[in-house]
Structures are given as C-alpha cells and as structure tokens.
C-alpha cells in the first residue's frame, strides 16, 4: 500500500449494512414525502389536498420504521436513549457538530410533527374524531406553522445522513462534501415517485398528480447532475467505483433510475396518464443509490 488516493484509506469500515441502507431509504421517504406534502399544502390548490394527506400518511410510518431500523442496528439497542440523554449525568446529550447527535434529536422532533400531521390528515379524511385535529390542517396559522417547522425537520432528516457519511474518515463518504445534497435531492425524487405510484393506485386524477410528476422529472434531472458532480468531486478516489459497485451505480442508478424515467417522461408529454413505470424506476434507482454508497465505501 505505497500509494493511495486519499488519507481516508486507512480507516476501518463501521459495518453499517442492510439495516442502514433501508434506513437511508425510508428516512429519505419520510422526510421527502412530508416536505412535498407541506409544499402541496402551502402552494397547491384545495383539490390537491388528498395528495398532501397521502404524503403525511407515508411520512409517519416511514419515520417509525426508521427509528426501529436504527435501534436494531445498534450494538446495544436498549441504550438507544443514550443518544438523547447523557447516561451518567441525566443531562440532555447534544453535539451540534456531530450529525448523528443532531440527527437523533431531529428524528425525534420530526417524528412528533409527522404524527401530528398524520392525525390531522386522518381527521380531515373523517377517519378519526379529534376536534382539535382540524386546526392542524390548512387553512390557518397553526397548520402553516406546523407545516413549515415539520417540513424543515423533514428536510434535515432527508439530508443529514449524507452529511453524516461525509463527517467520517471513510473513503468516498468523506472525500466529497456533496452526499448530503445528493440525498436531499434523491429523497425528493423517490418521495414524489412513491406518491405518484400510490395516487395512481387510487386512480386519483387531480392536477396535483401531474404537477408532482413533472416536478419529479425536474428533480431526477437535478439528481443526475448532482451525482455527476459527486463523481467529479471524488477526484482520484473515483477509482474505487471502477468496480462492480461502479457498474451497479451506472446501470442501476444512472440508467434505470434516472435516464430511463426521464426518457419515458419526455415521450409521454402528450398527456398519457400512466406514470407508474417511471415512478417505479425512480424508486428502484433511489434504493440502489443508497445501497452502492453504503456498501462501496466499506469494501475499499
């Protein structure tokens, strides 16, 4: 080992495996769907409300699943609370400069907001009796406030995982500052895709679905640009992806998850409403992206 591309090549892999890949995927979905639901609530029309509610219906179960996956991944799962409370002083544990520390708090707070919005959506759909629940749905100051604060935490949950990887000394992860950005943009693309898929299943035809679809095409295009920027920013470390992982990244993420859906989208400009294929491809690509990033950096 006489010449290495980066000083990061001497660290050890933390053995973050499938649980973390799934967490990155469902955490991205949780933050992304909430973020999109808030955008629809704030900037969409009244007839798009069911789409926003769909976002909240996805976000809450995903954040619960995220917490579960993270807990199971710990060497000592029963000590999960040590992330929040200093176990020997009982004071709050918070390190602004440690993404995992801030992320633990963000997940907790986001979980509370996504629960409130989830209940609000149930009330609006007349599936739950809770008089105050109406007030957390628009229009109204309280609903706007909950949306904006919850949406900010949703964005944080969607993106901090990429920053967390960058704030290490592993090859690839810490050789680019762009993983957080990639994860945020990818969270938006997979979340829009899942919302489109479920809206199609319910045969919803409100205009918001088409708007979401068009937005997803823009976001996937942006994601493609960011991924290329990640590759360039890796510099000599990029050679770590001249491997089976690189092939998977190229075919699974770039071709299947980005170029193919974009091509299908442009072909369907004429108003074809079957958007299922593109959405499914974007979801598959988003999952493979996280899989490649988590595993490839630990095999170096």
């Amino acid at each position: 080992m006489n010449t290495v591309p980066s000083s990061t090549y001497f660290s050890a892999p933390p053995e973050w495996g499938w649980l973390i890949v799934f967490y990155f995927f469902f955490g991205g979905l949780a933050g992304g769907t909430y973020f999109l639901a808030v955008l629809i609530d704030l900037f969409g029309r009244a007839e798009d409300r069911p789409l926003a509610r769909l976002g909240y219906y996805i976000a809450f179960p995903c954040v619960v699943l995220s917490g579960l996956l993270l807990t199971l991944d710990l060497g000592r799962p029963l000590r999960l609370w040590h992330m929040l409370i200093e176990s020997n002083t009982w004071r709050p544990m918070f390190k602004l400069w440690s993404p995992m520390s801030v992320g633990s708090w963000a997940l907790l707070i986001f979980g509370i907001f996504s629960l409130i919005s989830f209940l609000g959506a149930l009330v609006e759909d007349d599936r739950l009796e809770w008089p105050a629940g109406r007030r957390v749905r628009p229009p109204g100051v309280l609903s706007g406030l909950i949306g904006v604060i919850g949406g900010l935490f949703g964005f944080y949950v969607a993106g901090y995982t990429g920053v967390l990887l960058a704030v290490t000394n592993r090859p690839i992860w810490s050789d680019t500052p762009l993983l957080g950005m990639l994860f945020v943009v990818s969270a938006a693309s997979i979340s829009a895709a899942l919302m489109i898929l479920l809206a199609q299943r319910s045969r919803w035809t409100m205009p918001g679905v088409l708007a979401l679809h068009r937005m997803d095409a823009w976001v996937v295009a942006l994601e493609f640009v960011v991924l290329i920027a990640v590759m360039i920013s890796l510099g000599p470390v990029f050679r770590a992806w001249l491997s089976a992982w690189g092939l998977l990244l190229f075919f699974g993420v770039i071709v299947v998850g980005m170029l193919l859906p974009l091509w299908l989208y442009w072909r369907k400009q004429s108003g074809d409403l079957n958007l299922t294929t593109e959405a499914a491809l974007v979801l598959v690509g988003g999952f493979i992206l996280r899989l490649v990033i988590v595993f490839s950096a630990q095999g170096v």
Partner: peptide, 14 residues
C-alpha cells in the same frame, strides 16, 4: 457502559 454501539467512531478514526 455509555457506548451504545452506533459505530460512528469506527468510521471517524483515520
């Protein structure tokens, strides 16, 4: 007795 095995330190140690 405080560590919960999150393994962030493993990835951080150069």
């Amino acid at each position: 007795d405080t560590c919960n095995g999150c393994r962030d330190c493993i990835a951080a140690c150069p």
